[in-house]
Amino acid sequence: MFDVPGWGGHRAGQHVDVRLTAPDGYQAQRSYSIASPPEDGMRVALTVERLDDGEVSSFLVDDVRTGDEIELRGPIGGYFTWDVRDGGPLMLIGGGSGVVPLMAMVRHRAAAAAPVPARLLYSVRAIDDVIYHAELDRIAAADPTFMPTLTLTRAQPPGWTGLHRRVDADMLEQAVWPAADAPRVFVCGPTPFVESVADILVQLGHAPQHIKTERFGPTGG
């Protein structure tokens, strides 16, 4: 969470560049999705997944303390974005930490109390990998027009009755509004996840221009 004096606002789905500078002038930059909604004003939240060989992510997760100053640039990216005025229905499909920009949309929608029907299909390996679990449950409990669905692809806790496989055509046919309803679809996750989901959606008849994608590649960052 950063206090960003002069932050000019952002759209849900946008990202920032984080730039770190070492004492010898060496710099490392990476892009991170904004997790907070525009309604949070000049307070900007990032959710960073720590990658073992990630020189920026490991610093942000392990070393940053309250009160540190970090150089941010943004907001960046204007395509993978959603505003309540864009309407719906809103279909969000996330794999792993790909849920982060989708969460900004969920939070924006909740903060604006927008009556746009929305669904989130969220694929993770195991229950402990679910980010924002309690918050998603809380938003869903308060709002019958928001429906999150989890699928746990590798390990399920005892008594788990939900989905427990990778996202496939049957799952998407169940989870996604039919193409005739022209849902606005946002897909974010690792490249193979996004490629697979987007291909299936096109096969199910969704117009490619209604499917917006963002890929989190294993880029070492």
Binding site: R19, Q27, A28, Q29, E55, Y79, F80, T191, E195, A198, D199, L201, V202, P208, Q209, I211, K212, T213, R215, G217, P218, T219, G220, G221
Partner: peptide, 19 residues
């Protein structure tokens, strides 16, 4: 170039489905 780092894989970035 400034601000860049090396990868060995080949990341994919596209705004929509692959045609």
């Amino acid at each position: 170039p400034p601000g860049q780092y090396i990868v060995s894989g080949f990341p994919v970035l596209s705004a929509g489905p692959t045609p």
